[in-house]
């Protein structure tokens, strides 16, 4: 699993990346009550807005960690957005992306580097 400074995670399987927000981000947001996801087929550019995750108080943008084409959005989150809090790094995944450039994934942080980043906050 790879991570961004903005607290997204990326898990690769072949050329498909599963993307979500980290446990730290979910804890900071509080209980998630609504998730807005891109539609399959949409093209994402690394660093651009990909999804919106909302708590009772506020809406937070989630940025695409990598460029590519959305192949799936987690439909379970429509009825059960709380999955983002309950299982942020598995059942609470947001989207699957067919990646455009494998080198982008390599440039992301590994878990040790991400945890060091969290300690620096």
């Amino acid at each position: 699993m790879r991570f961004t400074k903005d607290h997204e995670w990326v898990e690769m399987e072949g050329e498909i990346a599963t993307v979500g927000i980290t446990a730290y981000a979910a804890e900071q947001l509080g209980d998630v009550v609504f998730v807005e996801l891109p539609t399959p087929g949409a093209t994402l550019k690394a660093g651009a807005e990909m999804a919106v995750v909302e708590s009772v108080k506020a809406a937070s943008d989630v940025y695409a960690p990598i460029s590519g084409e959305v192949t799936a959005a987690n439909a379970e989150l429509t009825d059960n957005p709380q999955s983002v809090n309950d299982a942020p790094e598995n059942g609470g995944w947001l989207v699957k992306i067919k990646i455009a450039d494998p080198a982008q994934v390599e440039s992301l942080m590994d878990r040790d580097a991400y945890e060091a980043h969290l300690r620096s906050l």
């Binding site: 509080g30 209980d31 009550v33 708590s55 009772v56 108080k57």
Partner: peptide, 8 residues
């Protein structure tokens, strides 16, 4: 703004 339980 909130305690450990959270807003909800």
């Amino acid at each position: 703004v909130s305690y450990a339980a959270g807003v909800l």
